[in-house]
Amino acid sequence: MKVLVIEDSTRLLRSLERGLKKMGFAVDTAQDGELGLSLAETFDYDVIVLDLMLPKLPGLEVLRRLRAAKRGVHVLILSAKDRVDDRKEGLQLGADDYLVKPFSFDELCARLKALVRRAFESKTPVLEVGSIELDTVRQRVSRAGEAINLTPNEYALFEYLVLSGGRVSSQSQLQEHLHPSDTEVSSNVIEVLVSGLRKKIHTEGEPPIVRTRRGFGYYVDPQ
């Protein structure tokens, strides 16, 4: 899942970036509103974490412009402003969630995952694909109660494909959602990831879970 964090505090941004990456998110960061808006308009993020008091362009203005441009990306406002009016204004402008600083990192992650699920129109945190169970809260994949050890990138790829609900995702889409925008990724990284994932989740005698549509990309058959 790809997250854009727009936050002017370097120290907070550093810890958030680090923590979210560890949680399997691909994280882009921006320290001012202008850069944040530019990134949000350029790339396809699953969720944007948006501070309100930003240099150059206030957070609410970033949000307003995004919504004016019909960008439906989910936005979580992360702000020290805790008044009801502030929350109301943010939510009325089109934010999907509001978290007040100081906050729990776990709560932020849970809210981001909830927004991701909402983006993929999934309400349950535990998804099932055939005999495989994907727990998006615990970030755990298992078959018949037995854990399957995936790397963070493999997990992120599998979660994205499962949440996509059978829609085909191209390599470039997968790259965009699995890696920060400023990261140079070689063209076969996704192929290597898919190959590794297939080996770990495939069972002899059963149809493949991650399938390829030649010339288009990959998908997971929800059945």
Partner: peptide, 22 residues
Amino acid sequence: IAHELKTPIAELRSLGEVGARW
């Protein structure tokens, strides 16, 4: 005052939680 203290507290909490987890 609350606002000026909230941001560093948020930074500190986030640093602490992320640092302690990894």
